[in-house]
Simulated assay, not measured.
Amino acid sequence: MSGTKIGYARVSTAGQDLATQREGLAALGVNPKLVYVDHGLTGRDRDRPGLAQALAAVRAGDTLVVTKLDRLARSLPDARDIADELT
């Protein structure tokens, strides 16, 4: 795997903390400056600014990294749409 690792983290409520996801992304080799986040947005809401920034940052050869798949997508069709966007 070559290229840059781009991280994405999301919490659904303002009261939740991103620390665990940030630590997990760092453990997976993601530079903290390349982690994009969304606060207070559910996975059902596809209009997530942090996700849009993360997807825009990914270039050919890069890897989009999440700590859990449910942080990225809430359904298989949503995950497929995101994968299509990346390709």
Rank of each mutant, 00 (worst) to 15 (best):
residue 12 S to Y: 00
residue 12 S to G: 10
residue 12 S to L: 11
residue 13 T to G: 05
residue 13 T to R: 12
residue 13 T to H: 10
residue 14 A to K: 06
residue 14 A to V: 05
residue 14 A to C: 00
residue 15 G to N: 11
residue 16 Q to S: 03
residue 16 Q to R: 00
residue 17 D to E: 09
residue 18 L to T: 08
residue 19 A to N: 14
residue 19 A to V: 08
residue 19 A to H: 12
residue 19 A to S: 15
residue 21 Q to G: 10
residue 22 R to A: 05
residue 22 R to I: 10
residue 23 E to Q: 15
residue 23 E to A: 14
residue 23 E to V: 04
residue 24 G to S: 09
residue 24 G to N: 09
residue 25 L to R: 10
residue 26 A to F: 12
residue 27 A to Q: 15
residue 28 L to G: 13
residue 28 L to E: 15
residue 28 L to Y: 14
residue 28 L to K: 14
residue 29 G to F: 06
residue 29 G to E: 06
residue 30 V to W: 08
residue 30 V to L: 07
residue 31 N to Q: 09
residue 33 K to Y: 04
residue 34 L to I: 02
residue 34 L to V: 03
residue 35 V to R: 08
residue 36 Y to E: 02
residue 36 Y to M: 00
residue 37 V to T: 12
residue 38 D to M: 05
residue 40 G to D: 06
residue 40 G to W: 02
residue 41 L to S: 01
residue 41 L to P: 02
residue 41 L to Y: 04
residue 42 T to D: 07
residue 42 T to W: 01
residue 43 G to E: 12
residue 43 G to W: 06
residue 43 G to T: 10
residue 44 R to E: 15
residue 44 R to I: 12
residue 44 R to S: 15
residue 45 D to H: 09
residue 45 D to V: 06
residue 46 R to V: 14
residue 47 D to R: 10
residue 48 R to T: 09
residue 49 P to I: 02
residue 50 G to E: 04
residue 50 G to F: 04
residue 52 A to W: 00
residue 53 Q to E: 07
residue 54 A to E: 00
residue 54 A to L: 07
residue 55 L to A: 01
residue 57 A to N: 05
residue 58 V to L: 04
residue 58 V to C: 13
residue 58 V to D: 03
residue 58 V to F: 01
residue 59 R to K: 13
residue 60 A to I: 08
residue 60 A to F: 04
residue 61 G to T: 04
residue 61 G to I: 04
residue 61 G to N: 07
residue 66 V to S: 07
residue 68 K to E: 15
residue 69 L to V: 14
residue 70 D to E: 06
residue 71 R to N: 09
residue 71 R to H: 09
residue 71 R to P: 05
residue 72 L to I: 08
residue 73 A to N: 11
residue 74 R to H: 14
residue 75 S to N: 09
residue 77 P to Q: 07
residue 78 D to W: 06
residue 78 D to C: 01
residue 79 A to E: 08
residue 80 R to M: 10
residue 81 D to E: 14
residue 81 D to H: 13
residue 83 A to M: 09
residue 83 A to N: 03
residue 83 A to G: 10
residue 83 A to H: 12
residue 86 L to M: 06
residue 86 L to I: 09
residue 87 T to G: 15
